[in-house]
């Protein structure tokens, strides 16, 4: 059963430049909520953005991962993300 951390790493590894926050919101290891920000989402519809994330997990969605609730956002520019991180 995947952990929230494993799901985060897999999303970030599969979608170039993606930054993900993942929480296991029932604590049961099968209901996850993820917020993903990626430059790759720019110019894509919400449906297409969510599909990019679902595609990382294929048949695991609906199987071991019962639910993966998504919020996606196109990253404005690489510079914004880094300067934001530097300010923290």
């Amino acid at each position: 059963m995947p952990s929230a951390e494993e799901i985060r790493q897999r999303i970030e590894a599969a979608i170039p430049g993606a930054r993900a926050e993942v929480e296991d919101y029932t604590g049961g290891g099968d209901h996850f909520r993820a917020t993903v920000v990626a430059a790759a989402f720019a110019g894509r519809s919400r449906i297409e953005q969510h599909k990019l994330v679902y595609d990382v997990f294929g048949a695991e969605i609906g199987g071991p991962i019962h639910a993966l609730s998504l919020k996606t956002e196109a990253a404005q520019a690489q510079a914004d993300a880094t300067s934001g991180a530097a300010n923290v």
Partner: peptide
């Protein structure tokens, strides 16, 4: 080409 349920369609198009 969408893995989860529910799925809402309008005029033949998947809304989400």
């Amino acid at each position: 080409n969408w893995p989860t349920i529910p799925q809402l369609f309008h005029k033949g198009e998947l809304i989400g």
